[in-house]
């Protein structure tokens, strides 16, 4: 891993991998959407509205995964001082924030016909909303502090402390009596979901993961270029 902390090596690898990753993302989305909108059946209780699950659940998973990813790379930056670890955490934040927003928005759209309300301050929804606020706070730290080393130091703490919300979100449906249904895929005794629905859901989850990795690699490339620009400007200023 130390080897890939070298920005030039990372850029070469990212540029080589990106076209394949874009192609894989497109194929997975085509298959996933076909499964979600065509082959998967209607639910016996939810009817056709169950199809919202294929965009809501993967968005929630990636919304949580991205924050875990940020916390992991913040810890790596804190412990090993990898030059790219802070960049990896920083660039994952806007992508994670969008997926977190999508989880809240699509969940709300599903909630109206199923629960009769757009929003309820239930433990799962509230904890997901707090995750959204943590994303905004993390992004605000990077935007508000001009000195990059100070911003990185504070952002690492926000990411690491904020990661406590992840197990709370995951287990909120078990710890509290919530309106949100309990886990039906990752649970003891295996998934409690029809096979075609599970296939479509997992394909969409893979598509969202591939999309996250693609967008993250491009963002990392941009961040490395921005750092090079900043460095050259500093050299110019010092030279004058």
């Amino acid at each position: 891993m130390q080897k890939f902390a070298n920005p030039t090596l990372f850029l070469n690898l990212a540029n080589a991998v990106l076209p394949y990753l874009i192609a894989i993302t497109a194929v997975l989305f085509t298959l996933g959407l076909y499964g979600a909108l065509v082959t998967s059946p209607a639910d016996y209780q939810q009817g056709e509205t169950v199809r919202i699950m294929y965009v809501h659940v993967p968005a929630s998973w990636i919304g949580m995964f991205a924050y875990g990813f940020m916390a992991f790379f913040s810890a790596v930056a804190l412990i090993f001082r990898h030059p790219l670890a802070d960049a990896a955490a920083k660039t994952a934040a806007p992508i994670g924030a969008v997926f977190c927003f999508l989880a809240l928005a699509t969940g709300s759209i599903w909630g109206k016909p199923m629960w009769g309300t757009w929003w309820v301050w239930d433990a799962r929804l509230t904890s997901m909303f707090i995750l959204m606020l943590l994303y905004l706070g993390y992004i605000a730290v990077w935007q508000a502090i001009e000195e990059p080393f100070l911003a990185a130091a504070i952002a690492r703490i926000v990411a690491l402390v904020g990661s406590i919300i992840l197990p709370i979100i995951k287990f909120s449906v078990d710890w509290w009596n919530t309106l949100h249904q309990p886990a039906s895929v990752f649970k003891m005794g295996g998934p409690a979901i029809e096979t075609r629905m599970l296939a479509a859901l997992l394909t969409m989850a893979l598509a969202y993961t591939a999309l996250f990795l693609t967008l993250h690699l491009i963002s990392m490339r941009t961040e490395i270029a921005k750092r090079k620009l900043r460095q050259s400007r500093l050299f110019e200023i010092r030279g004058n």
Binding site: A42, E48, T49, L102, P113
Partner: peptide, 23 residues
């Protein structure tokens, strides 16, 4: 199914597509 969900499915997919494409 499109005729049987009062537009909620379309709304969820539209907002997802819009946000992902914009990002």
């Amino acid at each position: 199914w499109a005729a049987h969900n009062a537009g909620f499915v379309e709304a969820a997919y539209a907002i997802s597509a819009f946000c992902i494409i914009a990002l």
